[in-house]
């Protein structure tokens, strides 16, 4: 720094180079799947398709809501071409707001109809299930294990079970759908019973898993991907697909979803990218990865972990996607208020 000319020159160069960004040539993807997994996948897709893909990943602190907010904020000048959401409800909400364009991907033909938008604005693939994760040291006998979402309100588990706060991500979708399924009064009663039962409402699904693995609670509600990561780390945990008995509502399945953002850059590239994301090989990759996502299509090998059941082998909860999406914002406000945020 002895020579001030060098200093000024360096600074000017840095400033100029930093400000010389141009609008990217290829499509831009907003992706809420865990970056550790999704980044190499997207980079690989870019190479395969010969596209220069710009990617913006989920921030755990804001979760999917952060990217959804960004798409909503940016709607006058969309920056995203493709939205890859690791859950469904917010994608549907964007579709309802008219921010996604219809596109029937050839790769989506084999996706079961219940996981596709009738207007082709979004397509679901590779799902996670909302499961109960059990600490096997605390509850070694499987006969003692909980089996239903209702166990959150069972006095037997008072202060010994946990669930993430339903403010973002899959838990928000789950609780909003549950509200739809139980009706306002039924849900209110259930929520009050949970509070009465000293259920630990934690910040995230990851946190519920950690608390369970540490033995601070006996069990918790979480997603299959969190369970699988814990299992791989050798944590003393097991997984239960809840509500499988006759008359019970079944296990909630939340697929990833992808859609093309209206007016985003490189719409043609975006279509190619969506085709590639919806390819069966992607589902296979997601099933084999640490997140152990459950393929929605037949003919794809599911996760190796026997605890994670393949589709069709368990009772899936029937939830109204459109209703859930419509009521997501209001439910979010409501839950936030309940948790003092």
């Amino acid at each position: 720094m002895r020579n001030p000319f060098a200093f000024v020159g360096l600074t000017a160069f840095l400033l100029a180079s930093a400000c010389s960004d141009k609008i990217p040539a290829g499509p831009t993807i907003y992706c809420s799947l865990d970056e550790q997994f999704s980044r190499p996948v997207i980079e690989q897709f870019g190479k395969e398709l010969g596209l220069r893909i710009q990617a913006r990943y989920d921030t755990e602190a804001a979760k999917t809501v952060g990217l959804v907010s960004a798409i909503l904020e940016e709607q006058k000048h969309p920056r995203a071409s493709v939205f890859w959401n690791n859950e469904l409800a917010h994608t549907v909400r964007l579709a309802q707001e008219g921010l996604l364009v219809p596109y029937r991907s050839p790769s989506a033909e084999t996706v079961p109809a219940q996981f596709r938008d009738p207007q082709d604005r979004w397509t679901g693939f590779a799902a996670r299930a909302r499961v109960l994760v059990i600490n096997t040291n605390v509850l070694p006998d499987s006969k003692d294990w909980p089996s239903s979402y209702r166990d959150l309100a069972d006095p037997k588990w008072k202060g010994r079970c946990a669930v993430a706060r339903p403010l973002t991500g899959t838990t928000l979708t789950h609780f909003t759908a549950l509200k739809g399924a139980l009706g306002d009064s039924g849900f209110e009663a259930f929520f009050a019973a949970m509070l009465q039962n000293d259920v630990k409402f934690l910040q995230s699904n990851g946190a519920t898993l950690r608390e369970t693995a540490a033995g601070n609670v006996a069990w918790a509600f979480t997603d299959t991907d969190d369970y699988h990561v814990g299992k791989l780390r050798g944590q003393p945990i097991a997984c239960v697909f809840p509500d499988q008995k006759d008359g019970e509502i079944g296990t909630m399945l939340i697929p990833n979803s992808v859609g093309i953002v209206r007016g985003g850059p490189d719409q043609e590239g975006a279509k190619k990218l969506v085709d590639r994301i919806l390819a069966m090989s992607t589902e296979a990759m997601l099933a084999a990865a640490e997140g152990a996502q459950i393929p929605l299509r037949e003919g794809i090998d599911g996760p190796a972990d026997p605890g994670i059941l393949p589709i069709g082998s368990f009772r899936a909860m029937a939830w109204d996607v459109e209703w859930t999406a419509q009521n997501l914002a209001a439910a979010n406000q409501d839950f936030a208020k309940r948790f003092g945020l």
Binding site: K63, V65, V68, S69, E73, Q333, A336
Partner: peptide, 8 residues
């Protein structure tokens, strides 16, 4: 927290 929910 409000910011994350702002747009929705």
């Amino acid at each position: 927290s409000r910011w994350t929910r702002r747009a929705v």
